[in-house]
């Protein structure tokens, strides 16, 4: 049984300007379903096409990261990852936050890559994006990390990310993009 009132939970989300949130196992069907609904809702809200497509694209990159890289997985299915996705609007700006469990070692590599990205200006990010796109895939990275470069390029503010300790082996990684 739910310990607290579902209404107070909803009110808390509304206060934060949350349009959509999902927490749990993510499959490709959910990506498609939320993605389409999100686009429709932004159309109803009369958000311009460029902003809508930016929010949609960051949502897709983040949610596909959860599917592919979350260390919290459904055991019987390779393509299920558990995590959280939040999309909202605060002070007229859209934000997309994604989070999932990650191993300490992978987290350290990711953190170092993200630390480099936030120091780059838009031209440097564009060059890096094009350079990474040309490189051949390695086994570890399904999108060669260009998803994160894409997020940095589309974000109007520096990427905000954190790695919070779960236990000795794992951290909880989260990243926020503001459009």
């Amino acid at each position: 049984m739910l310990k607290n009132s579902i209404y107070s939970y909803k009110e808390a989300l509304d206060k934060e300007g949350i349009i959509f949130t999902f927490c749990g196992p993510v499959s490709h069907d959910i990506v498609e379903g939320i993605g389409i609904t999100l686009k429709n809702q932004m159309q109803i809200d009369e958000v311009n096409t460029t902003t809508t497509m930016k929010v949609f694209s960051i949502f897709i990159e983040q949610v596909q990261n959860v599917i592919h890289y979350s260390q919290e997985r459904c055991e019987k299915s390779f393509d299920f990852g558990k995590g959280i996705i939040v999309i909202g609007n605060n002070d007229g700006k859209h934000f997309i936050v994604g989070g999932n469990k990650i191993s300490k070692s992978k987290g350290a590599i990711l953190k170092s890559n993200l630390n480099d990205l936030v120091l780059m200006d838009k031209d440097e990010l564009k060059e890096l994006y094009k350079q990474k796109r040309k490189q051949n895939d390695n086994e570890e990275s399904k999108g060669a990390g260009i998803g994160f470069i894409e997020m940095a390029r589309k974000s109007s503010q520096p990427l905000k990310y954190s790695f919070e300790k779960i236990d000795e082996e794992y951290s909880f990684f989260s990243i926020e993009v503001v459009i």
Binding site: M53, R133, I146
Partner: peptide, 9 residues
């Protein structure tokens, strides 16, 4: 209309 970063590659 849209392609993700993996498709871009």
């Amino acid at each position: 209309v849209y392609f993700n970063s993996s498709s871009s590659k």
